[in-house]
Simulated scan of single mutants.
Amino acid sequence: MLTDWINDANITLVNQVNNWQSAVELAVQSLIAQQAVESRYLQAIYAMHEQIGPYYVLGEGIAMPHARPEEGVIKTALSLVLVKEGVNFGSEDNDPVYIIFGLSAVDSNSHIEMIASLSQFFCDEEAVKNLKLAIDKQQVLDIIGQF
């Protein structure tokens, strides 16, 4: 379940951010606080974004910034940032983004269950809509607790 990974300590709710970099930084700061990644992980995401664009914008309004395990991953973890007013990542079809899941994975297999739960969530339009509208951490946990 997503609540195995997301809890009160790694959810951030903000009204707005200055830019996509700030949104990614909020997600990664939570991963750093969980001792899941080294601080260089953030720079790796920025560098990859500059090279190939917003590869981690997965669908309308949803992003999952991440970098390769060798870029500073310590353990598999997840964080969640909600940006009420949305933020543009440069993804023509999917901007603005409101839901940002920060992901760190030690390898390509260890997080399969987490990705499966996230996929179920992403496919549930009602849950995605409700998460965008959530106003506190308990609401967030109630919504993602279904997956």
Rank of each mutant, 00 (worst) to 15 (best):
Val14Lys: 10
Val14Leu: 11
Val14Met: 10
Asn15Trp: 01
Asn15Tyr: 08
Asn15Leu: 02
Asn15Ile: 00
Asn15Gln: 13
Gln16Met: 07
Gln16Cys: 02
Gln16Asn: 12
Gln16Gly: 05
Gln16Phe: 09
Val17Cys: 06
Val17His: 09
Val17Arg: 05
Asn18Trp: 00
Asn18Val: 00
Asn18Thr: 03
Asn18Phe: 01
Asn19Gln: 04
Asn19Thr: 02
Trp20Met: 11
Gln21His: 11
Gln21Cys: 07
Gln21Lys: 15
Gln21Trp: 00
Ser22Asp: 14
Ser22His: 06
Ala23Gln: 07
Ala23Lys: 05
Ala23Ser: 14
Ala23Asn: 07
Val24Cys: 07
Val24Thr: 08
Glu25Trp: 02
Glu25Leu: 09
Glu25Arg: 13
Leu26Met: 09
Leu26Arg: 01
Ala27Pro: 08
Ala27Asp: 06
Ala27Met: 07
Ala27Cys: 08
Val28Asn: 01
Val28His: 03
Val28Arg: 00
Gln29Gly: 01
Gln29His: 10
Ser30Lys: 15
Leu31Asp: 08
Leu31Cys: 10
Leu31Met: 07
Leu31Gln: 03
Leu31Ser: 07
Ile32Leu: 06
Ile32Tyr: 04
Ile32Lys: 09
Ala33Asp: 13
Ala33Val: 07
Ala33Gly: 02
Ala33Cys: 00
Ala33Glu: 12
Gln34Tyr: 05
Gln35Asn: 14
Gln35Pro: 08
Gln35Leu: 06
Gln35Tyr: 06
Ala36Lys: 05
Val37Tyr: 06
Val37Phe: 11
Val37Asp: 10
Glu38Pro: 08
Glu38Gly: 07
Ser39His: 10
Ser39Thr: 15
Ser39Lys: 15
Ser39Pro: 15
Ser39Phe: 05
Arg40Ile: 14
Arg40Val: 13
Tyr41Thr: 05
Tyr41Val: 10
Tyr41Gly: 06
Tyr41His: 10
Tyr41Ser: 05
Leu42His: 10
Leu42Cys: 06
Gln43Cys: 00
Gln43Asn: 15
Gln43Thr: 11
Ala44Gln: 08
Ile45Ser: 06
Ile45Glu: 03
Tyr46Gly: 02
Tyr46Asp: 01
Ala47Ile: 02
Ala47Lys: 12
Ala47Met: 03
Met48Asn: 07
Met48Leu: 09
Met48Ala: 08
Met48Thr: 12
His49Val: 02
Glu50Arg: 08
Glu50Gly: 01
Glu50Lys: 12
Glu50His: 03
Glu50Asp: 14
Gln51Phe: 03
Ile52Gly: 00
Gly53Arg: 03
Gly53Trp: 10
Gly53Ile: 09
Gly53Phe: 09
Pro54Leu: 11
Pro54Ala: 15
Pro54Gly: 11
Tyr55Leu: 12
Tyr55Met: 09
Tyr55Thr: 10
Tyr56Gly: 09
Tyr56Ser: 09
Tyr56Phe: 15
Tyr56Arg: 12
Val57Tyr: 14
Val57His: 14
Gly59Pro: 01
Gly59Thr: 14
Glu60Asn: 13
Glu60Gly: 04
Glu60Ser: 11
Gly61Met: 05
Gly61Glu: 01
Ala63Gly: 13
Ala63Pro: 14
Ala63Ile: 13
